[in-house]
Simulated scan of single mutants.
Amino acid sequence: MMRDDTLRRELRPVLWLSLAGAGFCALVVMAGAATRLMDAGLGCPDWPGCYGAPLVPDAEGALAHSPGVPLEATKAWMEMMHRYLAAALIAMALLLMALGRRLRQRWTGYPWRPTLGLLALLMVQGAFGAFTVTFKLWPQVVTLHLLGGLSVMVLFLWLHLRLRRLASGAPAVMRPRRLTLLWQVTLLALVLQLALGGWTSSNYAGIACQGFPTCNGQWAAPMDWGEGFHLTQAVGPNYLHGQLHAEARSAIQVGHRLGAALLLTCLLALAWRHSRDRAMRPWLALAVGSGLAQAALGIANVLLWLPLWLALMHTAGAALLVICLSLAIWHWRWPSMVVAPHVGREEWVHV
């Protein structure tokens, strides 16, 4: 008992820090979405500074640094605030690593590799942040940057769950349950849909199809699938407001809708498959509920012509869906403490 109390006390700072990191990362993702939706992604023409300065300069300083890029102060500050928030996230990961370095020597099973992986992923994510500016909002980089941000959020959450499991006294030797084919397909559908959402956003195809469920009043509207999903677009043009023609953007929008239908089908299939599992029922209900809410937000964005507040809610809905499905996967893979009736004592079993 004394050992368990000591373990919980020593793990408390990293438990709270990892949970705060997951929440803060969701905020950074939202800030990135707001930056893009306000056309502020190129508010600063360079990286990591803004017109060569750590803070947004005045118009005279900006003109001296980049004569061909006039300063728009609001957009520049929006972009720099996003960078400052991302830097704070890296500081949190560094602090987690500093605290974990001592704890891993004291406690068997401390999740040290996920801690290092988190910091490495944040470094990669920072590089993509730089590429977003230097490649002038190239859709491939913008999409990967979004996926990277959500991946960092999941890794913070996963680290927190691993730490909670360690603090609970769970045996370190227990292996997690393997994901079945249906879980794997659902996870793949989620990643695909997130990528389609990023591709839709980075190519400014959010309202390429007016109306729902039809596209521009037609069930079979003209669409250019080859151009819409041409993944080797040239690097060099400024992709602010997009470079694709209308039919290519319509194809992207319809592809995003089809991806949503596939993901919802997978989520409903999972909920039906595990409907008799009382331990999984609430987590899958959260995943299905967040998926349905996200679909409703997507439809509302199309019908209301993508207002800023609603587009931000759609991004928040994507983050919530990722969290809910991650929690469902965690509770499927790892056991919970229950009382084993055949021996009348607590055991770690799969439920």
Rank of each mutant, 00 (worst) to 15 (best):
P171V: 09
I207D: 09
C209P: 10
H342T: 11
L320H: 07
Q233I: 02
V339S: 10
T6H: 12
A93N: 03
H350L: 07
R106S: 09
A328W: 14
A195W: 13
H331A: 04
H350P: 01
L122V: 05
Y204W: 15
V29G: 02
G317Y: 07
H230C: 04
G259L: 10
S202V: 03
G344T: 03
L188I: 14
A221E: 03
H350N: 03
M153T: 05
C25N: 14
L327V: 13
Q184G: 07
Y51L: 01
A86Q: 00
W16R: 15
H314V: 09
L19Y: 13
A279I: 07
L292E: 04
R12E: 15
V338W: 05
Y110R: 02
G100D: 12
L146H: 06
H245Q: 15
L179K: 07
L116V: 13
Q294N: 10
F135I: 00
L190V: 08
L119E: 10
M80H: 09
A195Q: 06
R113C: 08
L264V: 13
I329M: 15
A53Y: 00
A20H: 03
Q193Y: 04
V69I: 12
L27H: 09
A195F: 14
L103D: 07
V141T: 14
G68N: 07
W334G: 01
T315D: 11
Q140L: 14
A340H: 11
R178Y: 03
W334L: 08
L144T: 04
L116T: 09
A296D: 06
E227K: 06
R345A: 10
R12L: 15
L27P: 09
E227N: 04
V185S: 08
A269F: 12
V124N: 05
L297Q: 02
H342R: 11
L190Q: 10
Q218K: 12
V173F: 12
